[in-house]
Write a protein that binds this DNA or RNA. Structure first.
Lengths: 225, 225
DNA sequence: ACCTGAACACCGTTCAAGT
DNA sequence: ACCTGAACACCGTTCAAGT
């Protein structure tokens, strides 16, 4: 039971907990890791928090709520007056860059929610995190569909999954890298693909790029397996 | 220590283990869950396997090796004679569909590797799984770059991350759904985006789709938060 | 009022004892 | 030769005792 609490110590425990949860996930995080880092006894933990699980849940839900708040303000389609006259694809790119910045600044919390709580009743929290992003993407893309910007054959669900998959791949890299990655170029690439695809020039489609051309090229430097 | 072993029982334990690991991840999986499911005592487990971790590692590495084998044969760019004359984007789409089918048929193992081993020395195994896909994508895209199919501004790393992100998002859905999703349509969507982008018609770019058009549309049905 | 640390329960692992 | 289950260690949680 969380009973009386020295709020100072509670703050130290919160800071210690997010670090330990990020490093190890919920199950492998030891209460003694957290209390050692905060400089108190193991028992003191239970003066401040119901349980290890309850603390993890509280911190993840707060993070997801903060994310939802960010997306409401800087969602994948901009809503403010600065967006007027801005190309929708540029709006998407701007919002993606803002989201990645936001995640970078909170990468310890990001690492915590991605490390996850597999095998516990809180396993769904990582899914909720990803769904928060996907839902924001979905809402924006549905608006674009209604405005007839988007090829009608492409479902909003698919486009939202693609954009979210890219963000999540990127988020995994943010957690691993020590210095802030240069996001701008990749966001620009995403913009180009949304507008024109990934291939060289549309007017050459269906004429050149068959496997005969591909396999005539010597194998690329085998940077992969 | 894995000592002598009734190979029959070993098979039962392997079957039980993948089920329990998929359901709970490495840390939350109890050895007694596995042995109960196989109908033996807890101690018998250690006649067959070094430890719970070692078994998890063995099964994940086998799965990743099988995946690598599949990708070598049906990698994101086809290599066989059937590929001659096939458009490269259709090759990518065909290979993606084959990969998703392969993953669907092994979705218990997929779930096991995604459930993960956070906080243990085996935490990197989920990353290795994703990297196996990313490396295969990267190799194919580099070949396409060498054949000058791809817009040169778009790096292979970015395109591989995008394709992999989509596959991983899809893999998460495979694990959750009970009946095999219809993959073909989504693969077709991916194909269209690679070739022409996601927007309605390239010749309307930079003229219509500013936020003024978007925000004039009544808010879409709020299927998201 | 707040904190400590011994004690308890749970589960991974070991091993002496069964068949 | 193979399996069992009691015993041990580790860690989440509790609580009687300190200050």
């Amino acid at each position: 039971m969380a009973r009386q609490a020295n709020p100072n110590l509670q703050g130290q425990l919160l800071d210690a907990a997010v670090t330990v949860f990020a490093e190890r996930g919920l199950l492998a995080a030891k209460v003694s890791d957290i209390t050692d880092l905060a400089g108190v006894s193991k028992g003191a933990f239970y003066l401040h928090f119901e349980s290890k699980e309850a603390l993890y849940e509280q911190m993840c839900r707060q993070f997801i709520a903060d994310l939802t708040g960010h997306l409401a303000g800087h969602g994948s389609l901009l809503c403010g007056p600065e967006a007027l006259g801005m190309h929708v694809v540029d709006q998407l790119a701007t919002a993606d860059e803002a989201l990645l910045d936001w995640l970078w600044q909170r990468r310890v919390h990001l690492q915590m929610v991605l490390a996850g709580a597999a095998g516990t009743p809180l396993a769904h929290l990582s899914d909720e995190f990803i769904e928060a992003i996907e839902n924001s993407m979905l809402a924006s893309i549905e608006r674009m569909h209604c405005a007839s910007c988007v090829e009608p054959m492409l479902t909003s669900q698919f486009l939202a999954a693609m954009a979210t998959g890219l963000i999540v791949m990127y988020a995994r890299k943010l957690v691993q890298s020590r210095e802030r990655p240069a996001v701008t170029r990749d966001v620009h690439h995403f913009r180009r693909i949304m507008m024109l695809g990934a291939l060289l020039t549309p007017d050459q489609l269906d004429t050149l790029w068959t496997s005969a051309a591909i396999h005539a090229v010597p194998a690329a430097a085998p940077s992969a397996h």
